[in-house]
Amino acid sequence: MTPKPPSPPPAPALPLRLVAQFRHLIHELGKFGVVGGAAYVVDLVIFNLLLSTTGWLTATVISTTVAATGAFIGNRYWTWRDRERSSLAREYLLYFFFNVVGLGISVGVLWLSHDVLGAVWPQLFQTRLADNVAKMLVGNAIASIFRFWAYRRFVFNGAPAAAPAPAQVG
């Protein structure tokens, strides 16, 4: 009787295979989330400070611009630092363009809530809480999904830079 050959080790479970396959994307998404979380706090604080002295549209534009500039620095030098660089001007102009689109998404959601729904139910939708939920939660969530895709696809789209070769001894 011949011995039975050893069976191959079992394949990892599907979730583990997916994590291994998408590890780099998950890592980028995590970094993007940290940078975005910091930008979110900046945006939230500035937006609410400005709501006391100006209208919702002006507050939105100013707070988003300040937060997006900080996020550009974090994304360029941390989230996608391993990507090959194109010119700073090209990256910032594309980044700015996609932030304007993201701002349009947030403003659209806030306008729909504050002005459209607020015209019907002003006591519900024309409040500071409703404006914060519309812009800071719903609008930013939709805009963030768009921005992650756009930044990764168009702004920081260079191939990951090759790791330096190990030093030769000898």
Score class of each variant (00 low, 15 high):
D82A: 12
W56V: 11
Q21I: 00
T79Q: 02
L57D: 00
H27E: 12
N99W: 05
R85P: 11
G33D: 03
V19T: 13
G30Q: 07
F125Q: 03
V35M: 01
K31E: 10
A71N: 05
G30F: 11
L110D: 01
S63R: 00
A13T: 04
H114V: 03
A20D: 13
F47E: 02
T54K: 06
A119S: 15
R76Q: 04
V120H: 12
K31A: 10
A89G: 04
V19W: 13
S52F: 06
V42T: 10
N99H: 13
V116H: 10
W78N: 10
V19Y: 13
A71E: 02
V116I: 15
D82N: 11
L112W: 11
V116F: 07
L103F: 11
G55T: 05
F97Q: 09
V45N: 07
R76F: 00
T53A: 14
L117W: 11
L44D: 05
T79Y: 06
V109W: 07
I62G: 01
P8I: 14
K31N: 09
W78R: 09
F96Q: 04
Y92I: 11
A20V: 09
T58A: 14
A119E: 08
L50I: 03
A68S: 13
L25M: 12
I26K: 10
E84F: 04
S63D: 01
Y40C: 00
W111Y: 15
T53Y: 13
Y92D: 00
V34C: 06
S106M: 06
A20H: 13
R76G: 02
V41D: 07
T127H: 09
L16F: 11
T58L: 12
L25A: 15
P12W: 08
T65E: 07
V101H: 06
R23P: 01
A89Y: 08
V116R: 12
I105E: 03
W80G: 09
N75R: 04
L18T: 07
V45K: 05
H27G: 10
V19L: 14
W121D: 12
N99L: 04
G70N: 04
T54Y: 06
S86H: 14
